[in-house]
Write a protein that binds this DNA or RNA. Sequence first.
DNA 1: CTACATGCAAAATCTTTGCACCCCG
DNA 2: CGGGGTGCAAAGATTTTGCATGTAG
Lengths: 164, 164
Amino acid sequence: MTAGKERREEFDVLDEYLSKNGLKHSKQRETILQHFLETSGHMTVDDLYRVIHRKHPGIGRTTIYRALKVFCDAQLADAIELRDGLTRFEHKFRHAHHDHMICVECGTILEFVSPDIERLQDEIADAYGFDIESHRHQIFGRCQKCTRLQSLQNKKRKKKTSRA
Amino acid sequence: MTAGKERREEFDVLDEYLSKNGLKHSKQRETILQHFLETSGHMTVDDLYRVIHRKHPGIGRTTIYRALKVFCDAQLADAIELRDGLTRFEHKFRHAHHDHMICVECGTILEFVSPDIERLQDEIADAYGFDIESHRHQIFGRCQKCTRLQSLQNKKRKKKTSRA
DNA sequence: CTACATGCAAAATCTTTGCACCCCG
DNA sequence: CGGGGTGCAAAGATTTTGCATGTAG
């Protein structure tokens, strides 16, 4: 897992942010950033904690919470909240803005972007004299796989005429 | 506060939902529904609890949590979650679907609807074979009032040349 | 009379804080 | 060295659950 090379830039961004803000570089922050970068998708603090704590039992949850907050401030990470009460983090550096579709069945998170929606959104805000800072647009439903699975099960149910 | 008459229909909806589902009518549910209907905007459980508990000290938080869940199931209420970790409830009956703009300064919540955005959203979901069940689209920023206030303060700051 | 409803307190969850100790700059 | 960083345990905050008791149907 030496993803260090191709991610050099992210480490530089962190170091720059730290020194510019009178914060300090630490072995823990580096380790956490490394694992954050190596983990794909939309991880919770606990996802990250489990992976990191196995290899580095010295690093506690609190430090991960604090590191992720720093990463967000440094524009390396973005926090998103779905409907399960957990905060998830995703890569922000080299990852343009997007919104999410979340499968309520399997939890898969799809990303989408729509310049048209963003434009309409700006127009609406304008009409209200509202100054946009950020937004989130989340669509909940069933992904293609789960929709197919469901219709398959419906067919089976019909054949058996009834079920439970 | 006898808002009972013009809200009769909502009470009927509740009663119908209760009897259809083998649930029971109770004085508490009626009281909570009454106050829910009389409260405008986007209330938290605690907002409602404080109002109700003052007049009806016998009604506890738990009952309000449970009643609001029932109201949501009965399509009388809708739960929304912004970014402060609190669940808010709004009227759903006679209140068409809409999304929210939230002022990060004063907390004001504006509602908006955009058929165009909804249509684009459907098209995107379609393209992914995603079957939409619900969505939420929240825009965070500053409302007109707060934006004006801010630019006013900026002018003052400029005149004084510096500040803190 | 039975099953659902209620209310209190305790539990469960996720996240933040207090504090003693450690380490970077 | 000094001020931030870390880690543990404890505190916070919101929501849920267990359980004994009340009450609608």
